[in-house]
């Protein structure tokens, strides 16, 4: 899923302080799972903001709504009838949701309420870790199912680098060395001979470097 983290309240306050009628818009997908921008977070943030502005003698109306998804036209259409009632939308969706909402409602300021962090997994409640950088050309088949692009600080394709110590990254003991993990897997699978195959230079054209990306499937388009 897309993992996001709540922005600090004071930062949110700073971004919305000049508006009087604000729609706080949550999303039922990834940001709900990572507890950053679902219905519950919308409720809490809205309540906190209402109290803050009241306490500071400012009349601000903050309303709440959480959509099934903010990355799909059909769900975003649900607010079309009411969008003009607001001076701004504070979206607690990921960066995709914020932008999709902004795209759709041209004249309404749409502001981000979370920091979109990475594509990751839930290690346990309250701990999420990165697993993928969406480089557009998956190499997991040759790296034991562990991704050096997203999990090595230097995205070394022929690792580990010289900084790997006791299975940890040179960044420090809190970060696993991705290449140690790769080697552990290759060993466990009895495929250590694959380690010595040189990885070719990666084609980053499918990554961010190639410009904004599109996936187009003619077979399913209507």
């Amino acid at each position: 899923m897309i993992v996001a983290d709540k922005k600090p309240i004071d930062e949110v306050i700073e971004t919305i302080k000049d508006y009087e009628k604000i729609l706080l818009l949550g999303c039922n997908e990834c940001v709900t799972v990572c507890e950053a921008g679902g219905k519950k977070e919308v409720e809490v943030l809205a309540s906190a903001l209402r109290m803050y502005f009241l306490n500071n003698g400012k009349k601000v109306s903050i309303e709440e709504k959480t959509l099934e998804r903010q990355c799909d036209h059909e769900y975003l259409e649900e607010i079309r009838d009411v969008i003009d009632q607001y001076d701004a939308v504070l979206s607690l969706a990921c960066g995709v949701g914020v932008q999709f909402t902004a795209d759709k409602y041209l004249s309404t300021p749409v502001l981000p309420g979370v920091n979109t962090c990475f594509l990751g997994a839930t290690e346990k409640r309250g701990v999420w870790t990165e697993r993928c950088q969406a480089c557009g050309k998956c190499i997991l088949a040759s790296t034991g199912g562990i991704c050096p692009v997203s999990r090595c600080a230097k995205r070394v394709m022929n690792g580990p680098c010289g900084g790997s110590t006791n299975g940890k990254c040179e960044l420090g003991p809190d970060t696993d060395c991705a290449w140690q993990l790769i080697i552990n897997r290759l060993e466990a699978m009895g495929k250590m001979d694959e380690y010595e195959k040189l990885s070719p230079l990666k084609d980053w054209a499918t990554d961010r470097a190639g410009g904004p990306r599109t996936v187009e499937r003619e077979d399913i388009q209507s």
Partner: peptide
């Protein structure tokens, strides 16, 4: 924590 962050 939320209360503290809004000055209560």
């Amino acid at each position: 924590e939320v209360l503290e962050s809004i000055g209560i």
